[in-house]
Simulated assay, not measured.
Amino acid sequence: MAAYNNLDCAFNNAGIDRVVKPLHEQSIEDFDKILSINARGLFLYMKYEIQQMLIQGAGVLINNSSANGSLRGVAK
């Protein structure tokens, strides 16, 4: 904000994939890491972006997901 004064648009695209293996072989640590980055990361981006956009009265948020996040599962 110090450099540009406004946040007109934000494109949120945080995400990681996991090691490709069946769900029952995934570790809880891997699952927690994925959720922390993919879900918590997006939450934190938007939390602060929205605060600023409300202050300035305008702004656009764009959230992106890969095909891995929404369209396919992994099975063996």
Score class of each variant (00 low, 15 high):
residue 1 M to A: 10
residue 1 M to S: 11
residue 1 M to E: 13
residue 1 M to G: 15
residue 1 M to V: 13
residue 2 A to R: 15
residue 4 Y to Q: 13
residue 5 N to R: 12
residue 6 N to E: 14
residue 6 N to R: 14
residue 7 L to K: 06
residue 8 D to K: 09
residue 9 C to R: 13
residue 10 A to H: 07
residue 11 F to D: 11
residue 12 N to L: 08
residue 12 N to I: 15
residue 13 N to C: 13
residue 14 A to E: 08
residue 14 A to I: 14
residue 15 G to I: 06
residue 17 D to P: 01
residue 18 R to D: 03
residue 20 V to P: 09
residue 20 V to D: 01
residue 21 K to R: 13
residue 21 K to D: 01
residue 21 K to E: 03
residue 22 P to L: 02
residue 22 P to N: 02
residue 25 E to D: 07
residue 26 Q to F: 00
residue 27 S to W: 13
residue 28 I to W: 08
residue 29 E to H: 09
residue 30 D to S: 03
residue 31 F to G: 09
residue 31 F to A: 10
residue 31 F to H: 12
residue 32 D to A: 01
residue 32 D to E: 10
residue 33 K to E: 02
residue 34 I to A: 11
residue 37 I to V: 15
residue 37 I to K: 06
residue 38 N to M: 01
residue 38 N to E: 05
residue 39 A to V: 15
residue 42 L to R: 04
residue 42 L to D: 04
residue 42 L to F: 10
residue 44 L to K: 09
residue 44 L to C: 05
residue 46 M to I: 09
residue 50 I to P: 05
residue 52 Q to T: 14
residue 52 Q to F: 10
residue 53 M to H: 06
residue 53 M to D: 01
residue 53 M to N: 04
residue 54 L to D: 03
residue 55 I to R: 13
residue 57 G to C: 02
residue 58 A to M: 07
residue 59 G to R: 09
residue 61 L to F: 13
residue 63 N to T: 13
residue 63 N to K: 12
residue 63 N to G: 08
residue 64 N to E: 02
residue 64 N to K: 09
residue 65 S to G: 06
residue 65 S to R: 11
residue 65 S to F: 07
residue 67 A to I: 12
residue 68 N to Q: 15
residue 68 N to A: 10
residue 69 G to E: 05
residue 70 S to Y: 04
residue 73 G to T: 10
residue 73 G to V: 08
residue 73 G to Q: 00
